[in-house]
Write a protein that binds this DNA or RNA. Structure first.
Lengths: 230, 230
DNA sequence: CGGTATCCCCCGCGATACTG
DNA sequence: CAGTATCGCGGGGGATACCG
């Protein structure tokens, strides 16, 4: 494997950089705004840290990413103009995936850590209740370790916790992981899932009513799926 | 390597299919209209036939490609709706590659077989001279085996020959491979290369004058390159 | 937190030959 | 022409441990 394709074609030159394993997902994370190594890791949890480090280095060499020092010490990554220019490509790729790749019967693709990480990044900050609100998600079909997640909603800020932070819970969400993932991907609505009894909320009426409005779904939620899988 | 990414994200699901080694190039060839196995091979000459066969099978399983029987016996490949829907993605990828990936000092990416194959596919059929015209390309910096190529222009048809077909040559083109590749990619013009003495034509004045008009350059020729690398 | 270092497996893929 | 069969290796990358 020469690593390259030995072709002058621009598609080949681009594919040498972008179509390597994991790289499209790392780019997706960078395009979502993650800058810290460990934040990037949360977006690609099955990728080993050494491989992520190696990919970031390659992307830096290829001019898509630049590393910069943080004021408080430490370093972080951001996209260059060349990297940012890949946004429409990654978006088009994801839209194609949503439209054409079957998602049914893919239990092995469900991942509550990733889902909560994605979710917390896109909440509507301006629609959250004032003061601190604590949300607890319970994924009904998951074993203890991946069953409970907490979201701490504060003014202009959302934290996700993978362990009990100890605060009183204001609103509880109980839902199978597949249902919450389908909601995130735009394949179901919160209202519909509640009516069907697949998602239940426990807490004050005002929070139960406004919950659905806090969510901002995946950027691919609006992309329709093709009628039938080939 | 689980083969997949274990993520529900549409970018990940798409990348599992499209971002495998060689697959973007195979898709490019299919999108260009190649349907026969050996035509596809010409577009990815460094790919082994077994690997190409395997990739085509995968693409068929994933619903991007369908295999069909030819009237005269034999079989061929064509894109399904899902495969065709990847066109904007591959085009965007190539445009990004042209714009942002440096092509300089990449002698190992030059390939006269591929260049002639690409060229012959996009000639302006409606601008060719009437009757048969035989063109001979000579790549001045190449050794014997990859030095000469012939294009047979006939009514509504272009054939490329990698060996002397025996016909009288009407127009000879002599040019270094890098220069002809740069022309194909839109980085130089035929006129400019002639003026600079990097491309010379031998043949009747009328053919010399109309030559440049026959060419239809790479579909990425119009994409500008970024000012500087990175 | 922000990565490196190491080890080792395994299989992707390149090369070549061959067949209907 | 349109692929299949076989073989062997290289190194990609998964897992885990470790360091500043």
């Amino acid at each position: 494997m020469d690593k390259g394709y030995g072709q002058f074609c621009p598609v080949a030159k681009a594919a040498e950089i972008v179509a390597e394993r994991w790289t499209p997902l790392v780019m997706r994370e960078l395009l979502c705004g993650s800058q810290h190594f460990n934040d990037l890791r949360r977006g690609v949890p099955r990728m080993s840290p050494s491989l992520l480090s190696q990919r970031l280095k390659r992307l830096e060499d290829q001019g898509l990413v630049e590393r910069f020092a943080l004021p408080g010490g430490g370093s972080a990554y951001r996209l260059t103009a060349a990297g940012e220019a890949l946004r429409p490509v990654i978006e088009a790729l994801g839209a194609w995936g949503k439209r054409w790749v079957s998602q049914h019967a893919s239990r092995e693709d469900l991942d509550p850590d990733l889902l909560m990480w994605d979710l917390h990044r896109r909440l509507h900050l301006d629609r959250l209740p004032t003061g601190r609100t604590v949300l607890r998600f319970e994924f009904l079909d998951m074993p203890a370790r991946q069953r409970f997640y907490w979201l701490l909603l504060e003014a202009e800020r959302v934290d996700v916790c993978f362990k009990d932070p100890g605060f009183d819970v204001d609103l509880q969400v109980a839902v199978p992981l597949a249902v919450m993932t389908a909601i995130w991907l735009g394949d179901r609505s919160v209202e519909r899932a509640r009516r069907d009894g697949d998602l239940t909320l426990h807490g004050p009426r005002s929070l139960r009513q406004s919950f659905a409005g806090w969510l901002r779904l995946s950027s691919f939620a609006e992309v329709p799926r093709a009628g039938t899988r080939q």
